[in-house]
Amino acid sequence: MEKTEAVTIPNIDAYRRLLNKAVSQLLLDKGAATASNQCLETLTQMMQALIVEVGNSSHNYCELAGRTMPTVGDVSIALINMGINISSLETYTRRVNHVSIPLPSQQTQQRQ
């Protein structure tokens, strides 16, 4: 029987790695110097699932109204439906100011 390889973060999914980075940054800002691998992975997965779900829900509300391009209203209904308070977001942005995580540099192919 073949031995399975150790589980590592796949190198290909750059988006997932950036999510991981964002969670780690949040943890550091809150004063958690270290976190277990399982914790980090749970939080990353939750973050990914939340964004996908907000997108799906907003899209559905948008199509229900007979439109194709989602508006702020669709997003706010989706967020409210998921129990996220929108009015608290403004105070949050005023209170916390994070530096955005830079996107990884793209490899450009040199022309010969």
Partner: peptide, 24 residues
Amino acid sequence: MGGFHADDKRIVRLISIATQKFMS
């Protein structure tokens, strides 16, 4: 991935902030 496409980057940012606050 959820079928959502918006040209307005402010809508995307609103969702980013909502997610960030939830995780925070």
